[in-house]
């Protein structure tokens, strides 16, 4: 990947206009958000604006179709989520994050190698953006066309 984005930082490409959830929002708020926006993932922040987790489509599908998921997935965690009444109770804690100063080549490697579709960008624990595979694809296409 080295050389494709010389000296380009994540901050240049990331989406700054983020749709996010507050950790104490209700499950219905989450469903409304998924209905309104076609994003795969929503970051979750606390009152101080710190990133505390994420909610993705898998979690929502698991909650909506809990009666359909196979018995092997009836784990402790699934039970905890089924009991959850707010975002805090169902979110994935400790998501993968990067800093806005990260080299874009490194971010692209991370997404390619570990099949991560979206990464939250944080600065001093505060959520400042989201970088998606789509952003990187668009940038590569733009550069190829300009050549």
């Amino acid at each position: 990947m080295s050389g494709i984005f010389p000296e380009l930082k994540v901050s240049k490409l990331m989406e700054r206009n983020i749709v996010f959830l507050q950790e104490d929002a209700s499950i219905n708020d989450v469903l409304d958000l998924f209905e309104k926006h076609h994003f795969h993932l929503f970051p979750v922040i606390n009152d101080e604006g710190n990133l505390v987790g994420v909610i993705d489509q898998d979690i929502i599908l698991e909650i909506l179709l809990f009666h359909r998921i196979p018995r092997v997935k009836h784990t402790h965690l699934a039970a905890v989520r089924s009991l959850g009444s707010d975002v805090k109770g169902i979110m994935v804690t400790h998501p993968v994050t990067i800093s806005p100063d990260t080299d874009l080549n490194e971010a692209a490697d991370l997404m390619l190698k570990h099949r991560v579709n979206n990464v939250c960008v944080v600065e001093n624990r505060k959520l400042v953006g989201v970088l998606t595979k789509h952003d990187i694809i668009n940038e590569v296409i733009k550069r190829k066309r300009s050549v």
Binding site: F66, H67, H74, T75, A79, L83
Partner: peptide
């Protein structure tokens, strides 16, 4: 927990008060 959850779903008891207590208790 795995055994009980399936039956609670089948009986439509998962979101009941006692169903919720079974899950908490199993945790």
């Amino acid at each position: 927990i795995g055994v009980t959850v399936k039956t609670l779903i089948d009986l439509d008891y998962l979101s009941s008060r006692v169903g919720s207590m079974i899950l908490s208790s199993a945790i």
